[in-house]
Nucleic acid binder design. Structure first.
Lengths: 237, 237
DNA sequence: CTTATAATTTAGGCATGGCTAAAAATAATG
DNA sequence: CATTATTTTTAGCCATGCCTAAATTATAAG
């Protein structure tokens, strides 16, 4: 009877399934620091975990060779840590896409569910899911879905706030995780693929007037920073 | 910042998400004992966990009021424990159905994946999944899927081994979890819905000769006990 | 009905991953 | 540059769930 009795080596030989916690930390480090180093407090904040716990975990991640960590100086991902983080991100975004497209989830619902599922699902599941969804490159709010090899598909990144009066703008991405923000955009009809016409910017730039589906609307500067996409040179008629 | 600091009361007030372990135990108790009491060793065997650990967990489940447990006498599910177990079973079987039908999983693959997913998925997910699958009553090998209220759909349960020469038999269920057994049946074309014609039983009853898709085949008594369904009174032509 | 065997529980550990309080290092300010 | 403020770490705990070895209780056999 094969009992789970393996003593943890310092350097893990094979692929002993990474714990949910470790996965969460790697994702958090990537989101906080991408390439640079993530501070203990920033991670504690992100993960809603007390700073001393984060400290301890960073040492552990260092032993696992997922991060390079120097006391008092934060942690940055190694190649292997980064690969794991991107794998998680791939899972998360594919699952979000699936829930949104096939199961009619709303923005409020999609994130938490994906957060759980991404830890439970096998690589096989993810690849079959990708096939099921016809290998999307971006999730429903336009975030790029990392490829199996870790490449991040290109994504237009000009802020709507940077466009100018008279220009047209094609939305590619809504740079927010907040459900209320995403719902608000959805209500306005602002979603990836949509073309907006900019009427004018309010003096001092706090507001932008635009045409969505030929309906005049106004958007605050803050929200206009979240909307990312491309300025259209030759506006479609 | 809301840290998870709630001291565990003896009687849990609300719905503090049950741990994966607790869920596994409840399912195991149901599978081992259904209505009666499950012994410590039987559970240890099922769960591949050492007996003393099971002992400890049974006390805990008693405190949680999921089981009635008397030292040295095994544990049986309370109403609340049974409800949980059936909920888990519903999850498991719906997920298996999904993986099999939509994601082309084979028998070897389906079980382990479902085992993980059933813990990670929300009730909402399950109900949307049920809708997605058009509310199946049985999973791909014919096991009944409990309804949200805990009812188990009726399932024909006559063993193929109990039929008689000359009769026809409609398969409803393959009473096994073993991947190799299920694959073997699949290879033979024996699956829920299939009609078999019994040619004859070997003397001493160790073997049954039958017609599957008009092809003559033989099946051992052991396997013929696993195939469950209905004897057809008026054989179709 | 006593004894050997099998099942079960108690005792004592261990790893993981959280927490708080207090100390130490780093950064910011007068 | 000394001092205060902030960040981070160390120290020491706790809960969950698993383990092994050693009792204990139940059961089967003589």
């Amino acid at each position: 009877m094969a009992k789970n009795n393996a003593k943890q080596d310092l350097k893990p030989i094979s692929n002993p399934k990474i714990s949910n916690s470790v996965e969460d930390y790697l994702k958090a480090i990537w989101m906080t620091a991408q390439d640079g180093a993530a501070s203990t407090n920033a991670l504690a904040e992100q993960l809603n975990i007390a700073a001393p716990s984060v400290s301890a975990m960073l040492s552990k991640l260092q032993n696992l060779e997922f991060v390079v960590y120097e006391r008092y100086k934060g942690a940055s991902l190694t190649e292997s840590g980064k690969a794991k983080a991107l794998e998680l991100l791939r899972r998360h975004r594919l699952i979000e896409t699936f829930l949104f497209e096939s199961f009619d989830y709303s923005w409020d619902e999609v994130h938490d569910e994906a957060e759980q599922l991404e830890h439970a699902v096998s690589s096989q599941f993810i690849e079959r899911l990708a096939t099921f969804l016809d290998h999307p490159t971006h999730d429903p709010h336009g975030d790029p879905i990392p490829c199996p090899n870790g490449n991040l598909p290109d994504t237009p990144n000009t802020a709507l706030a940077e466009a100018e009066s008279g220009q047209s703008f094609v939305v590619a991405r809504l740079l927010s995780q907040a459900a209320d923000v995403l719902s608000y955009f959805a209500k306005l009809g602002i979603q990836p693929g949509k073309e907006l016409k900019i009427i004018e910017f309010e003096p001092l730039g706090g507001l932008v007037h635009l045409l969505i589906d030929d309906v005049p609307r106004a958007l605050s500067k803050e929200l206009a920073m979240i909307v990312r996409g491309d300025i259209v040179k030759t506006p479609t008629v």
